[in-house]
């Protein structure tokens, strides 16, 4: 199991707590001091993204952060429970492009639709009018909705966080399915610091 696990309500004010805990555990695990700023930033970006996804999908469950100390590396997994839309990481495309036809009225009311569907949709997905019909047919409104606690279209495209993570962290992996997504990141460690 993870060395330290953290569950927090998907609210912006708790992202800072996740950063602080992650940096503290990373330091103890022996991650180089010079890299701790990167750990802090990367975990903050991952949590911000997860919070945004939960909020925009109306998901009440918490965001999950696992901090894992191994012999020679320290790993962080940030998991969300949002049924996933496709997205791209710089340098590689995960999933198909956005091409699903918009439903009537979906374009101007994407956020309301996402919330309405998300409410009736547990972590397992499905349910009447659920978000996921098939892998290639996520709900049009939700998929293109950029989860942004700063609700303004011109302020970041919501995936800048992923760009920052991939620019910062050499070892990063993003996996998603209809039950949610996980961002895994790891850093090498030196001699563990004894308590």
């Amino acid at each position: 199991m993870a060395t330290v696990e953290l569950l927090f309500s998907a609210l912006p004010e708790h992202v800072r707590t996740a950063r602080l805990v992650a940096a503290a555990v990373a330091r103890r695990a022996g991650v180089d001091e010079a890299v701790l700023d990167e750990v802090r930033l990367a975990v903050g970006e991952a949590c911000t993204r997860a919070v945004g996804l939960h909020m925009s999908h109306g998901i009440g469950s918490p965001v999950r952060v696992s901090l894992i100390e191994d012999e020679k590396k320290f790993s962080i997994e940030v998991g969300d429970e949002a049924p996933h839309r496709r997205f791209t990481l710089p340098g590689g495309t995960l999933g198909a492009g956005a091409s699903a036809p918009p439903q009537a009225g979906a374009t101007s009311d994407a956020k309301a639709k996402a919330t309405a569907n998300g409410n009736g949709n547990g972590p397992a997905g499905g349910g009447g009018g659920g978000l996921v019909e098939a892998d290639g047919a996520l709900m049009p409104g939700a998929r293109d909705e950029i989860p942004e606690p700063v609700p303004e279209e011109d302020e970041g495209d919501g995936e800048m966080g992923l760009a920052v993570i991939s620019g910062l962290v050499d070892d990063v992996e993003v996996t998603t399915d209809e039950n949610g997504g996980v961002i895994r990141m790891s850093w090498p460690t030196t001699e563990p610091v004894l308590p």
Partner: peptide, 16 residues
Amino acid sequence: DFLDSTGLGVLVGGLK
């Protein structure tokens, strides 16, 4: 002390 992509987004918005 700390800046993330959300902050960058706000600065870009201000620039616009």
